[in-house]
Design a protein around this nucleic acid. Sequence first.
RNA 1: GUGGGUGUAGCUCAGUUGGUUAGAGCGUCGGACUGUGGCUCCGAAGGUCGCGGGUUCGAGUCCCGUUACCCACCCCA
Length: 426
Amino acid sequence: MSQFQAPKGTVDLLGDTSRAWEHMLRVATELFARYGYSPIYTPIFEHTEVFARGIGEATDIVGKEMYTFLDKGGRSITLRPEGTASVVRAALEHNLTANGQGAKLYYAGPMFRYERPQKGRQRQFWQIGAEALNMAEPSADAELIVLLWRFFEAVGIPADNMRLLVNSMGDEACRPAYREKVAEFIRAHAADLCAECDRRADTNPLRAFDCKNPGCVAVMADAPLLRDELCDECASHYAAVKEALVVLDVPFTEEPKLVRGLDYYTRTVFEVQADAGLGSQNAIGGGGRYDRLMEQYGGSPTPGLGFALGFERTLLAMQAAKARVPSPALADVYVAAVDESVRAQAFSLASQLRDAGVAAECDHQARSLKSQFKQADRIGARFVVVVGPDELAEGQLTLRDMGTKVETRVSRDGVTTEVRRALGID
RNA sequence: GUGGGUGUAGCUCAGUUGGUUAGAGCGUCGGACUGUGGCUCCGAAGGUCGCGGGUUCGAGUCCCGUUACCCACCCCA
């Protein structure tokens, strides 16, 4: 047991897990580029105000989950708890949406929230996210949702193992009136609701839909739904998004009670849940539209939308689906030294092969020849070059095909060419 | 932040009502094959039993604290 361990809620990513991480990044990089998204790297910390104003002072994230500290200059700094706020801040700072320009951006990296860790929930966790700015058309909503869905399919989670939930949260024209309507409904049924939900009538009536209390669930089942109260513009936008999803053949379920916990969402919201491997933290990705966010940061009114997906939870869903993560051979060629006298020459040959573009490995632990072959087998080397005194005396080496077990003599001078040909590189 | 459960070799786990030198499988290393892998056989290394107190003649086993993980609440990716 070492003296130190990783801080609570953080993990070291090793072996198959770190390989899976890189796989998810590769899949995302390739797929997102095909949808026209460009990479953006924002700082891992921001002025606290960026998150407080964007995500909402009253949310749990801002209220109790942020890693906030004063730096040596007395500035209040916060480790990013999510990615959208930073991207929007950067887009405004660099005028990416000036003169009606659109911007499609994606990011990947760790986020930080001070929460009680459990399965699928760490204090440092990884997300990939995509944001589409200045795109008001419902087709943009559909495109983003398809992208999220296709990503999960691409990493090996079958559609049958996932659920796509969509909803519309309305906008400033219709949500306030609806909110009041729900508040009235709650007050009218106060006797049948828990104390917590009674309070929600004044603070955040929509959250009563999330209450797990059976009595509350029964009462709220009859509560008015925002779907039925949307203004004309929100209703037609929502209808167009759903229609596009049908055309694109992305299966979805309308979930009128889907309410996201970040204040900036308007109109379309969505979430992908995995039904195996996740426990109660089953949302592997989610997002929505935030048409008022740019204004809150002092920009001109600019629509936007985005999603984020979690690496940890995606991997759990992949494992439950027995998704295959490609694990390339660690080396194509292993250069084995027969004895101590030729060790240096084996190393220089390995180096020469690497310079020639071949993934080559050799021993640095003074292992026996037999053990070097075991290593070669373990790392998946297709060929072993045996460097021995007998061959070298004649200016030659032995090239063994590990699959067929056929050995051939090759000249020391021509070995790089021979190996490249054997590997099919030339 | 609240409640419940768990913590023994690198990994997955045994460990009897507290009783002498804490075990297995897998993995690792070595040998059988003195210049050659995947199978088989043999052998070896590897553990302050999460950490700290307490009870006891004696604690991996009981009690308390603490820490980490797991589950639920909560929240969200």
